[in-house]
Computed example of a mutant assay.
Amino acid sequence: RLELRALEDVNVRADTPPAWLRERIAASLTGLAAYPDGRAARAAVAARHGVPAERVLLTAGAAEAFVLLARALPARRPVVVHPQFTEPEAALRDAGHAVDRVLLREADGFRLDPAVVPEDADLVVVGNPTNPTSVLHPAAALAGLARPGRTLVVDEAFMDAVPGERETLAGRTDVPGLVVLRSLTKTWGLAGLRIGYVLAAPETVAALERAQPLWPVSTPALVAAQA
C-alpha cells in the first residue's frame, strides 16, 4: 500500500517539494511577465515516456483532464470503475452524461475482472493504483478492456509512487483508445501548483487541447514538470 499523508483533502507523500525543486520553481518567477511556453515541458514529458510530443497534453493537474475528457469526447455510455477517486464521475455528470458504475467487491480484494465492464461501454474510467484502495491492477487486465470505438481512461495519478512503475500503461501506443492521466502533485508535494498531463493518441490530445482555455498551465508549473 502507498504511504501517503492526508493534508486536508490532499493525498501527497510529502508536505513540501524538495529543496532542489523549490529552487527551480522560485527561479521561474523572474519570467512571469511572459505568457507560459509549454514546449520544453511537453518535450520533457514525451522523453520521459518515450512517445512523440504530440501524444502529450499538459494540464492544470489531473483534475482538469477529467473535465476536458467529459466535455470534449463523445460518450453514449460512460462507465466508471469504483472504488475510485470521485472527480472523474463528477466531471462526467456535470457535463450532462448519465454514468454507470462498476462496483468492485471487497470480498475479491477490489480486484478488477474485465468481464464485469459492459461491452457497450464506450468510455471506461479506472484508477491504477486505485484511490482509495491502493489496489494495483495488472496492466494486461486493463489493456484487455480496450475495444474499437471505446476510450479507456486509466488514472495513474499515484503510479510514480509504485516501485518501478510496474503495471503502468504510460508510453503504450499499441492499446487502441488508451488515455493515461498522470499527476505530478502527489510524489512531489505540488498540489497547490496544479500540474499533470495526458498521454493519448494525437487526435485525442488535439480534441482535449481545443477544449482547454488559453495558457492553462502556469510558468512555475511548467518549470516543475520539466524539472
Results as ranks from 00 to 15, higher is better:
Arg39Leu: 10
Ala91Gln: 11
Val217Cys: 10
Leu21Asp: 03
Arg194Ile: 05
Leu7Trp: 15
Glu3His: 14
Val135Ala: 02
Pro138Trp: 13
Arg5Trp: 11
Asp100Thr: 12
Val67Met: 11
Glu106Arg: 15
Arg22Gly: 10
Val117Gly: 07
Ala227Trp: 00
Leu92Arg: 06
Glu89Asn: 08
Leu4Ala: 01
Arg39Glu: 14
Arg1Phe: 09
Arg24Lys: 09
Asp122Met: 06
Asp174Trp: 12
Leu181Gln: 05
Gln84Phe: 13
Ala200Glu: 09
Asp100Leu: 10
Ala140Arg: 11
Arg172Gln: 05
Gly171Arg: 03
Ile195Thr: 14
Arg210Glu: 15
Ala221Val: 07
Val135Gly: 06
Arg166Trp: 13
Pro216Ser: 04
Ala33Pro: 00
Asp122Glu: 03
His137Leu: 09
Ala141Thr: 10
Leu222Pro: 10
Gln226Phe: 10
Ala70Thr: 07
Ala43Glu: 13
Ala201Val: 06
Leu73Trp: 13
Leu104Ala: 07
Leu73Lys: 10
Arg48Glu: 14
Val12Lys: 01
Thr168Cys: 04
Ala224Pro: 07
Arg39Trp: 12
Val99Asn: 10
Ala98Lys: 15
Asp108Arg: 11
Arg166Asp: 11
Ala200Cys: 03
Asp37Asn: 13
Asp122Phe: 04
Ala41Tyr: 03
Ala121Asp: 01
Ala157Phe: 03
Arg76Ile: 07
Asn128Asp: 05
Gly189Tyr: 02
Leu69Trp: 11
Thr219Cys: 05
His49Asp: 13
Ala14Asn: 12
Ala27Cys: 02
Leu21Phe: 02
Leu103Pro: 10
Leu222Ala: 09
Gly96Tyr: 02
Val124Met: 04
Glu3Asn: 15
Leu193Arg: 02
Ala121Pro: 06
Gly177Tyr: 04
Ala121Gly: 02
Glu167Thr: 02
Pro74Lys: 01
Arg166Asn: 06
Glu106Val: 06
Asp37Phe: 12
Val10Gln: 14
Gly192Leu: 06
Pro129Lys: 00
Glu23Phe: 07
Leu136Asn: 00
Gly177Gln: 04
Arg5Thr: 13
Val153Arg: 03
Thr168Asp: 05
Thr30Gln: 14
Pro132His: 03
Val223Lys: 01
Val198Leu: 04
Ile25Phe: 10
Arg101Ser: 12
Thr219Gly: 03
Ala224Ser: 07
Leu21Cys: 05
Asp160Tyr: 01
Phe66His: 15
Val81Ser: 05
Arg105Leu: 12
Ala6Cys: 12
Asn128Ala: 06
Ala90Tyr: 14
Gly196Ile: 04
Leu190Lys: 09
Leu73Val: 12
Gly177Glu: 04
Thr185Met: 15
Asp160Gln: 09
Gln226Lys: 10
Ala139Arg: 00
Met159Cys: 05
Pro202Gln: 03
Gly177Ala: 06
Thr204Gly: 09
Ala140Tyr: 07
Thr219Asp: 05
Val56Gly: 01
Pro213Ala: 11
Glu89Val: 08
Val126Asp: 01
Thr130Asn: 11
Val67Tyr: 14
Lys186Met: 09
Tyr197Ser: 13
Ala44Lys: 00
Pro220Trp: 02
Pro176Tyr: 08
Leu184Cys: 10
Val198Ile: 02
His49Asn: 08
Asp122Cys: 07
Leu2Met: 05
Pro213His: 09
Trp20Ile: 02
Leu214Tyr: 06
Leu92Cys: 04
Arg172Glu: 07
Arg166Pro: 01
Val205Ile: 07
Asp122Pro: 02
Pro52Lys: 09
Ala91Ser: 13
Val124Lys: 04
Leu152Tyr: 03
